[in-house]
Write a protein that binds this DNA or RNA. Sequence first.
DNA 1: TGATTTTGATTGACTTGTCAATCAAAACGA
DNA 2: TCGTTTTGATTGACAAGTCAATCAAAATCA
Lengths: 223, 223
Amino acid sequence: MNRTAAEPAAIALPRKASREHRRQQLIDATIESLARRGYAQTTMTDVAVTAGVSHGLVNFHFDTKEKLLTETLLYLAEEYRDNWLAALAAAPADPAAQLDALIVADFNERICTPSKLVAWCAFWAEAQSRPIYQEKCGANDLAYIRNLEEICARLVAAGNYRHSPQRVARVLRVTAEGTWLDLLSMIEPYSRDEALRTVYACAAAFFPDHFDEAGLRKPSVDN
Amino acid sequence: MNRTAAEPAAIALPRKASREHRRQQLIDATIESLARRGYAQTTMTDVAVTAGVSHGLVNFHFDTKEKLLTETLLYLAEEYRDNWLAALAAAPADPAAQLDALIVADFNERICTPSKLVAWCAFWAEAQSRPIYQEKCGANDLAYIRNLEEICARLVAAGNYRHSPQRVARVLRVTAEGTWLDLLSMIEPYSRDEALRTVYACAAAFFPDHFDEAGLRKPSVDN
DNA sequence: TGATTTTGATTGACTTGTCAATCAAAACGA
DNA sequence: TCGTTTTGATTGACAAGTCAATCAAAATCA
């Protein structure tokens, strides 16, 4: 009622946090709320409280709940994409190293957090009934799939393996996705590191000269 | 699927059968609604309309929405469990045949329908915030995991493979789960048969003497 | 057998609560 | 000052759950 005198140690949310910053803050709150309360129970008020602002503000920045959720998925998809693109760019050009980079990228600590896994899963489930979600959901990142297939093809050729590159690519991809799901479903969750070793075991089964269960073999065979 | 909204002329079932039949009918409607509208948009009225009855009846049979959804998950979990148990029982005792049976069972046409996949995914996402769901969700069917590990251990021993049975079991399990997810996420979905071949490719990579991409090798090597 | 009572299934109007969205006013920065 | 950001009371829509009334099948009786 009175002039906002007593603000108890409000952890300085600068009022004029830049527009972008506030939007990001609300998106983060949405992810957290999706994880904590589930898709069905996530309300605008809930998101606002998590972000420490009033609910009216969420509508001010995102107009509708629908848009808030869509933007959140968009953010996750972009973050995921940026992550693997950067990993590929930073890795040596040989196919084994590139494959290794893609695998490691999936279990990056920024990407593979419990909250984000749950959020992804919520969107996957919802995607069936919402075309807007569908095209942004993981398995439809065509560029990713193409890259992975290309890398597998080069690795198959380089190592004289006899697999179908496309099928190997799909197995590796669904193994990583399945491991994500496993990480979030398990009552007693295992570490990201153990998850990574699971995918490496799969890579090692297909490309024994280039991978073992600990990851990329050090002495590269084909150079 | 049941049109005939106006004059159902339903074959009058005896009371007891009718009760069970109606409950099952409502559970089926719930799965369908979850798939068609998503978890968040699935209302009691929606389920009732799908089943062709009034919404009051849903409450009569299930008391609360919560209970309806829990019972639906329970039904899915039981159906899944019965399916792999039956498959194991019907298969020859040797480990390769048992593993083959488990793999095929996952892509059974009763289990692996688009609607049921979406429903599973919805429950996975929701499970994080609902302990009741969590314990019934796929990755926590301990009996299944134990069986799969045991079979892998026997197959590793029989074939003189050098893998860790537990890790192979996990890879096979998450590959199957990931393929499920892939089936429902893909804009251009592939067939159950192609899905099956994907998992076979994984099995073949680990157990090349016993599996190839088409499935279980006919002439058993170790007898 | 036919007439009756009892039980259980089903309906749809109603109550109650929740939530997205709106809006006027306040706070703030330039 | 003016424009932007933020608040919180309010609105209106909608969904879950309740309940009295209806109806049909089953049980009981004559």
